[in-house]
Design a binder for these strands. Sequence first.
DNA 1: GCCAACGTTGGC
DNA 2: GCCAACGTTGGC
Length: 150
Amino acid sequence: MRYWLMKSEPDTFGIDHLKRVKVEPWSGVRNFTARNFMMSMEQSDIVLFYHSSCQEPGIYGLGKVAKLAYPDATQFDTKSPYFDKRAKKDKPLWYNVDVSFVEKWARPVLLTEMRANPKLTTMITLQPGSRLSVTPVTQKEFEEISKYNA
DNA sequence: GCCAACGTTGGC
DNA sequence: GCCAACGTTGGC
């Protein structure tokens, strides 16, 4: 069992959307490092749901990997902003997992709080200039973040 | 809306 | 295979 942080803009798709639909393909990732992380995910890995590009960036709850990585349908969809003409059905370029809703936290763990916590300085997403939308989280980091909602 | 940091693209 | 130009991310 491993832990991952996955970013999403709440205006587009936030934790409340996931709660409503229960399970969602995490499509639209167009970065090779992030894609590779998704392809390495295992069933029931825990997802820390991070809201970015919003008033209060931070982690708002948990999801889990409901389906292992498979070809991202939006790469073949000419009407999608994520369409990629280089991708072929028999040779897909982009993959996504399905993420299912686990819980929304009573209160978010804000980016400012994580930055202020010396035990979380190792988090990839807190490194200067880090923009990856999918990053691994260690068990120690996960446990530290969990304390905020204990 | 600004801008720094970074990944990707494409010409050579 | 290098690297400049470009586009995107995401906090502020």
